[in-house]
Structures are given as C-alpha cells and as structure tokens.
Design a protein around this nucleic acid. Structure first.
Lengths: 167, 167
DNA sequence: CGGAGATAGTTTAGGCTTAAAATATCGATC
DNA sequence: GATCGATATTTTAAGCCTAAACTATCTCCG
C-alpha cells in the first residue's frame, strides 16, 4: 500500500508560467510542516492529557504572565479573534484551570490567569510537549535549527512588512 | 550539555529539561509564520473572491488532476479527515464548481473533479494567489528561499520519521 | 459460495474559528 | 455634565475540523 509514496499538500506543484514558483513551493512546504507537527501535537495532547491544542496554547500564554492578562491581550498574542478567546476562556474557567476577574480600573476589561491547578497541570504538559517537539526535530542539526530560526525570522518580517504595505 | 561521557539512545531522549529551547522556539516561529500568511491569504481570498481557504485548497488539488480523484485521495493530499472532505465537496458541488460521480469499478468510491466553471474560477484565483505569496516573501533573497526549501524539507522528513517511530 | 477483515465514504457530536453586529464602558471635548 | 468616537468584550451565524461510530462494498481465502 505504501509503495506509491507519501501524498501531501505539496505533491506536484503545478508548472505555472511566472517567476514565483519557488515562493509558492516554499509556502506549501511551510504549511505542510506546520500541519504535520500541529496534528501530531494535537493528537498527543489529547491522548496523554485529554486537552485540546487551543486550550494548551491559551494556558501557555498565561503561564508566562504571573499576574495574568486581559482577554484582548490574550487574543492578540494568540493571533485569534476576541470572540474565539471568549469561548476558550469560558471552558477553561469551567474546568477550574483559569480564573477570571473584572479589572477594578476599567470595567470593560477582564483579567484572566492560571489557577494553581491550572499552572500545575500546564507545567506537567509543557515538559512533555517540549520533548515531543525536540523529538520531531531530532533529524535536524543544531546548525539547521539555528539557520531555520534566522530564515524564518526574516520570513516573518517580510510577511509583516508586506501586510502593512497592503493596508 | 555536551558531556564527554558516552551518549546512548536513552541519554539523548532523556536530556535535562530545558535542553531543547531552540527547537521549541523554532516550532513557535514556524507556527507564527504560517498563521500570519494563512490569515492574510484567507482574508484576501474572502475579499477578492468570496471564497474560503479550505475550498480554494480543495480546488487546487483538483486542478492538478485532469481526471479528478477520489474523496479519499483528496483527504490524504489535503491532510484532513474524510468527514471534512465530505462536507467541503458537498458545498462546492452545490456551488457548481465541482462535479461528483460514483466510480464504475468500485461502488464505494466517488470521483470528484472541477467543472469547467470551477476550473476557470480557480485559475483566476490561483494567479492572484501566487502573486500574493511572492509579495509576502519579497523580503527574502532567492538564496534564502532555496535554503528554506531545503531546511524545511529536512524538517518535514524528520517529523515524518519521528511520527512513524512513535507509532 | 461465504465469512472475515479491509477500505471508501458518511454521519454525529462537540469543539474551534471567523467576521460582523451588538453591548458596555471609557476618555476627551464641548 | 452630555455627547462622540474609541476600546473591551460578547454574541451570532456560518463554516471548518476532528474523532469515533456507522454503512456499504470490496477482496481474499478457505
């Protein structure tokens, strides 16, 4: 069954007239890598901890902020919409992993932070998570990793610049 | 970290926590890049063509296959579940962009392919799409693009290997 | 033939995600 | 102090996505 090789999104990029075929291939490859890893992480989080990736991500943001942060800041950091964070936070509060309180100074604003239970649970998950990622990248040399960090940093800057310019 | 003692398979897997920060940073940066680009592409597809990214992706797969392909092959290539493709294809058929017919030789199997309208529409979108991607990566040199293609290819292989090994 | 297991696709239940509209509050200005 | 635009969050409607259970069909092998 496996004789025909692996199929994925970037199989057979169409031969298009134009000078930008490599950029398109790069985008597809980037997407493939991310999708592969994300799927694997999602699967392991569910199996090992019965938690979803978005919930893990939200907790990861809060773990870095002792005092917690507002829902708006959370949504900016997670790069998702406000409405999305509203729902996610709601479920995590219901599970007792996140606490929420209205800001005293600005009654529109709501702070969320990890509960003790949430922090304990997150730390445990984060430790394994880190080793999964290391494992998934274990075929790369330290130099590869550093090069990728640099180049992706450049790609990120390029993307942001192009997005602002198109505004 | 790089001790002078003997390292075996166990040692490598169970290195001290915190030894893999670069890999973790790499994963987060990869995710950020993808999320940024994906969001931008999604936004432009909606604005310019009133189409969603998943529908565009499905049509992109079909555009490469003159004869169409089965729903199963589509789901493997798109790296999404079967059920997902069922729904997506359903909506595209309803829009008249995709045609679907039962395979003669295997009655479980269903082929989908682009209609003429679907192909025309996709080609128009794909042309602009390619220029968006080129634009988003315009801050990278040709050499950067090639390096990224190589390194991400390596990352992809590493990930797949690690995923199979953990099976 | 006839069953056992594999394969193709659908359905279901639940969660994630977005864009856009709505609500509430703030801060500044008149 | 009333009003107006900005900000923080929620709500809504629609679509995306997954895992798991299910149906239908195929293939193999006795």
């Amino acid at each position: 069954m496996e004789s025909s090789g692996i199929l994925d999104a970037e199989t057979k990029v169409h031969e298009t007239p134009g000078a930008h075929k490599d950029e398109l291939r790069l985008w597809l490859r980037l997407l493939t890598c991310t999708t592969l890893i994300e799927g694997e992480v999602r699967r392991r989080l569910r199996e090992r901890f019965d938690v979803t990736l978005p919930r893990f991500d939200l907790m990861a943001q809060l773990d870095r902020a002792e005092e917690g942060m507002t829902l708006g800041e959370l949504s900016r950091r997670m790069m998702v919409t406000n409405g999305n964070v509203t729902g996610l936070a709601e479920r995590l509060v219901a599970e007792g992993l996140v606490a929420r309180r209205q800001s005293a100074s600005d009654r529109r604003s709501h702070m969320v932070r990890l509960t003790d239970k949430g922090r304990r649970q997150f730390r445990k998950m984060a430790e394994e998570h880190e080793s999964w990622i290391a494992d998934l990248f274990s075929g790369l040399s330290q130099k590869d990793v550093e090069s990728l960090l640099t180049l992706l940093g450049k790609a990120k800057a390029s993307t942001r610049k192009s997005m602002v310019a198109a505004e």
